[in-house]
Design a binder for these strands. Structure first.
Lengths: 231, 231
DNA sequence: ACATAAAAATGTTCTATATCAATAAATAAG
DNA sequence: CTTATTTATTGATATAGAACATTTTTATGT
């Protein structure tokens, strides 16, 4: 599954991710000592819900999607993971268990960083800790949002939501929709694949979106936002 | 609504909440300088989803429930807030807006702490930051759990879950069930009040629980756990 | 290029759970 | 103590959305 491409040499040095800038050289050294670079091929799991986690993942290049799993083949997609983001941070601070699964939707270069390195730097470098908390906070805000969507909105609103969310990545990732199947989109909206397909068609009929093979163009943002709000 | 009972005198000193033990005396002073003690009466809102938040709440005594709101009269209860817990921590690190509402279910003594105090202490005291992150993490884990429950479980599992969750507080709060209405319980399970009532009755008939006026005794923990797991 | 598998598309049926309606019990108010 | 107002309870009805079944399209491997 995972293929180790290159071992830890001069990598951490040229990490220009903002969150590593605030580290002292000893701290950088600590991270460097406890990290491995791993290459994940499209479709490989970066994390698996419930699995033991002794490291934190930091995405250098590539895209992944984060999701929670139910029984059998059901899953709910939570977000697109982009370069510069962590996966499995919780492992550092609570039970060493991944709260969620994540899977590469393109090939990914990822650092595995020993959780002890992160933990000790957080304790000695307040600014770094502050940054980590901020990331948590954002994740938290998103979780509250998702929970509200799942609890209070119905299909139309959820699909509109999903389209707007994914579309917001088009600047950075023009091919975002091509990377996702209808099932993926359905799983972002938390509805069945069939329902997703039907809703997309109906949105197309109402001139809210255009379907070009796998790509989706949003046309009427106002109405989509309205639908998303109204639920 | 809020009644200020006593002003900030020698209160912070005798806070024996573990998370304040690790502060230096200057840091304690900083917190003390920027805090107010407030008394919330049963039914008062400690936080209101969407409202501007310039402070963090720290519960000294009393109980509250945290919930997210939908339109009109709908809400989803997330947890019971107990002494020693923060409300609205996110305000410190992201938009100054409460992610969720919370309401006192008994009279509560609460500190309002200026978010700047918390922010600056986090940045200078790594251990304190670490502790805050841990709290975040736990909230995170709970949110993932709730999301999984809401997405994958159905009524029976959700009510069983709720009963087990509330029952787990009975040691500390023997009167926990008396403090909650059927609607409250339903809102913890994320189902309609009518459904909650019917399910409770059916659980009683199956000898899983006993209903004594408002109080609920769990009898068959094994089966309840089973139902909670199976969804 | 062909065969086989996977994904997308649609119409039909089925089900979990909300909503509605109406009564009974329990609090609160006067 | 009596009346008014929530809260709890119960059965009947309605519905959003899943599951199913089938066809069409697209992707994948040999």
């Amino acid at each position: 599954m995972k293929t180790i491409l290159e071992t830890d040499q001069d990598f951490i040095c040229n990490i220009d991710a903002p969150c590593f800038q605030m580290l002292t050289s000893e701290e950088v050294e600590l991270i460097r000592a406890g990290k491995t670079q791993v290459f994940f091929r499209k479709g490989d799991n970066l994390s698996k819900q419930g699995a033991f986690a002794s490291y934190v993942l930091f995405v250098i290049t590539g895209l992944a999607k984060q999701y929670i799993e139910g029984d059998s083949s059901k899953s709910l997609n939570l977000r697109i993971i982009k370069p510069g983001e962590f996966v499995g941070l919780s492992a550092v601070f609570t039970k060493n268990i991944f709260n969620y699964s994540s899977v590469a939707i393109t090939d990914c270069q990822v650092y595995l960083i020993e959780k002890e390195s992160i933990a000790s730097i957080v304790q000695q470098n307040g600014m770094f800790g502050f940054n980590i908390i901020k990331r948590y906070c954002e994740q938290n805000v998103n979780l509250f949002d998702t929970l509200r969507n799942m609890t209070y909105k119905q299909m139309n609103g959820r699909i509109a939501d999903t389209l707007l969310y994914l579309d917001s990545h088009k600047n950075q990732i023009p091919e975002i929709f091509q990377l996702l199947s209808r099932k993926d989109i359905a799983d972002f909206a938390g509805i069945s694949t069939e329902s997703a397909v039907k809703l997309l068609k109906s949105f197309e009929k109402d001139n809210l979106i255009e379907l070009h093979e796998k790509d989706i163009h949003l046309i009427n943002y106002n109405t989509l936002n309205e639908i998303s709000r109204k639920g």
